[in-house]
Simulated scan of single mutants.
Amino acid sequence: MQNIENKYIIFFDGDCGVCNFWVQWILTRDKKDQFMFASLQSEFGQKFLGERNLNQKEFNTLYLWKNGSYYLIKSKAILKVLSLLGGMYKIGGFVGNLIPAAFTDKIYDMISKNRMKLSNQKCFLPTKAEREKFIEI
């Protein structure tokens, strides 16, 4: 496992096909090697939630965290990821941030509520290099 000190950690529902698709999508575009991933169900994920008094039994929210800095949730986390990826994705993050969070989070919640129906639940097997980006795989 890599050092997490200077990485952005994406906490996701490890049992969700949509979330796993999103993780795979980021992995293939993370050319700057700035992201690591942790399932909310993992010990590390549970510790993150517990330390912030967040619900440790519901996994319908994506979190983006930078050690000692901040964390973002839902659509704001996704838009920040897009901005950090750079290039044309940064434009998407910028445009998305022009839309009020109440609206983008409503869309996020709608997708999250139906994520198990939307996903095809195919098994994702990361490569050895990709496994290095996961905390507690």
Results as ranks from 00 to 15, higher is better:
Ser42His: 09
Phe134Met: 06
Lys106His: 13
Tyr89Thr: 12
Lys32Phe: 00
Gly17Leu: 01
Ile26Leu: 01
Asn114Phe: 11
Leu72Ala: 07
Gly92Asp: 04
Lys90Cys: 04
Asn97Glu: 15
Ser69Leu: 10
Met36Leu: 13
Glu132Thr: 13
Met36Lys: 13
Tyr108Phe: 05
Phe11Thr: 14
Ile137Lys: 14
Ile9Trp: 04
Pro126Phe: 03
Val81Phe: 02
Lys106Pro: 01
Lys66Gln: 13
Arg115Glu: 09
Gln24Gly: 14
Leu82Met: 12
Leu82Tyr: 15
Trp25Arg: 13
Asp109Ala: 12
Ile73Cys: 08
Ala38Arg: 03
Phe124Cys: 08
Lys133Asn: 04
Gly45Thr: 08
Ile9Arg: 08
Gln24Leu: 08
Asn97Met: 10
Phe103Val: 15
Gly92Phe: 03
Phe35Thr: 09
Gln34Ile: 14
Leu40Ala: 00
Tyr89Gln: 13
Ser39Lys: 06
Gln24Thr: 15
Val95Gly: 01
Gly14Trp: 08
Gly93Trp: 06
Glu51Val: 00
Lys76Asn: 15
Ala38Glu: 04
Leu85Ser: 04
Val81Met: 03
Cys123Ser: 11
Phe48Asn: 03
Ile91Cys: 03
Ile137Asp: 14
Phe21His: 15
Arg115Asn: 09
Glu130Thr: 07
Gly45Arg: 06
Gly68His: 11
Asn3Arg: 14
Lys133Trp: 00
Cys123Pro: 00
Trp22Ala: 05
Tyr70Asp: 03
Ile99Asn: 06
Lys57His: 13
Tyr89Cys: 07
Trp22Ser: 11
Phe44Gly: 05
Asn53Cys: 00
Lys133Met: 00
Tyr63Arg: 04
Glu43Gln: 12
Ile137Gly: 14
Gly50Ile: 03
Val23Ser: 09
Trp22Gln: 09
Asn3Leu: 09
Met1Ala: 15
Ile78Pro: 00
Leu84Cys: 05
Gln2Arg: 15
Thr28Gly: 01
Lys113Leu: 03
Leu98Val: 07
Leu82Arg: 01
Leu49Val: 07
Gln56Arg: 13
Glu132Ala: 14
Ser69Ala: 14
Asn97Ile: 04
Glu132Cys: 12
Tyr108Arg: 08
Lys66His: 10
Asp15Leu: 01
Asn120Glu: 10
Ile91Phe: 11
Glu43Ile: 01
Leu72Ile: 06
Asn20Ile: 03
Tyr63Gly: 03
Gln2Pro: 07
Arg52Asp: 01
Asp30Gly: 06
Ala129Trp: 04
Ser42Arg: 11
Phe44Leu: 02
Lys133Ser: 00
Thr28Arg: 10
Phe94Gly: 07
Met110Asn: 07
Lys117Leu: 12
Leu49Asp: 10
Met36His: 10
Thr127Arg: 00
Val18Asp: 01
Ile137Val: 12
Lys133Pro: 01
Lys106Ala: 14
Phe48Met: 00
Glu5His: 14
Ile9Gly: 05
Trp25Met: 07
Lys76Leu: 07
Lys122Cys: 02
Pro126Lys: 08
Asp109Asn: 15
Ala77His: 10
Lys31Gln: 08
Phe11Lys: 13
Leu82Glu: 03
Asn3Lys: 15
Glu43Lys: 12
Leu98Ile: 13
Ile73Phe: 05
Asp30Ala: 04
Lys80Met: 10
Met116Arg: 15
Phe134Ser: 03
Ile26Glu: 02
Lys74Val: 02
Glu58Arg: 10
Asp109Trp: 10
Gly50Ser: 15
Leu84His: 05
Pro126Tyr: 07
Lys117Glu: 09
Val95Phe: 05
